[in-house]
């Protein structure tokens, strides 16, 4: 019966490798080349240029990509590389020594982890805020109008798990509204919540205003007054490991500038 073992070995090994290859979490961490010291030349006029690596929360993907390309236009010779992922993933990468110049977090808690480990070069600056909204599939099949409607029996509600920022925000509004949600699923992140609403599996989900706006006509948003109980503030900071501090500071300034704030406001972000 040795053949069984042989077949198993011959077949299983490459197959296992293939399946494991499919298990990546999908975040692209840029490799070290992002900010080599040689590229940090300061031009004659004092304008910083060179390569810049920005670690930013996944919810900032659209806006920061836009701000980044404007920044490249305003600072010729500059190349901005982004790593978009969950804020806690990004902090973990920074703690393990990932090379980056700027870190923008989706909450103060994860930025506090970075400052606590002395990873930041200066005090973080708040540059945006975000609040929760109810997302429903187009046509609002469950006829949701208020936050309290989510507690109606038979309404399938999906929220983030309390362990992640959007979930702790959901818990706060739940307390503020004095309701008790019975979600059918507590997802890992806001994208998974939104995905289940878009697919029509869930009747409603609690996501950020910017997520509803970003999803276009695939979901409808319903505002609710209790959302003010959980305002998520986004801080940004230049990192201590930055190879080109002047350029990193210039990027932080670009995010907080009128033009940067305009991009964020268009996407639904609130003032910090």
């Amino acid at each position: 019966m040795r053949y069984a073992a042989r077949v198993l070995a011959a077949v299983a090994a490459p197959l296992l490798a293939l399946t494991l290859a499919g298990c990546g979490s999908g975040d692209e961490s840029p490799r070290g080349g992002g900010s080599s010291p040689t590229s940090s030349v300061t031009a004659g006029g004092g304008e910083p240029k060179g390569d810049l690596t920005v670690f930013a929360a996944a919810s900032l993907k659209k806006t920061f990509t836009q701000i980044g390309s404007r920044f490249e236009q305003d600072h010729p010779g500059t190349k901005v590389t982004f790593n978009f992922a969950g804020s806690s993933d990004l902090v973990a990468q920074l703690q393990q020594g990932a090379p980056a110049d700027v870190f923008a977090s989706a909450d103060e808690k994860n930025m506090a982890k970075a400052t606590g480990d002395s990873l930041t070069a200066a005090a973080p600056v708040d540059f945006a805020s975000n609040t929760l909204e109810i997302a429903v599939p187009p046509g609002n099949p469950a006829k949701i109008a208020t936050l309290a409607d989510l507690t109606r029996p038979g309404v399938k509600v999906v929220v983030c798990a309390p362990e992640v920022p959007c979930g702790s925000a959901a818990t706060k509004v739940e307390t503020a509204a004095a309701i008790d949600l019975k979600p059918v699923s507590e997802e890992q992140n806001v994208t998974d919540v939104l995905g289940k609403v878009i697919a029509g599996e869930a009747d409603a989900g609690l996501v950020y205003v910017t997520d509803v706006k970003g999803a276009g006509d695939k979901v409808e948003g319903i505002e609710f007054p209790q959302s003010s109980a959980a305002v998520n503030v986004y801080p940004i900071a230049t990192l201590k490991g930055a190879q080109n501090k002047a350029l990193a500071d210039a990027f932080v300034a670009a995010v907080t500038s009128a033009s940067g704030q305009g991009v964020l406001a268009d996407a639904g972000f609130g003032k910090p």
Partner: peptide, 13 residues
Amino acid sequence: EFGATITFAGSLQ
């Protein structure tokens, strides 16, 4: 198994 579960089944204790 992780990916298919989190996409199809959700996540509730």
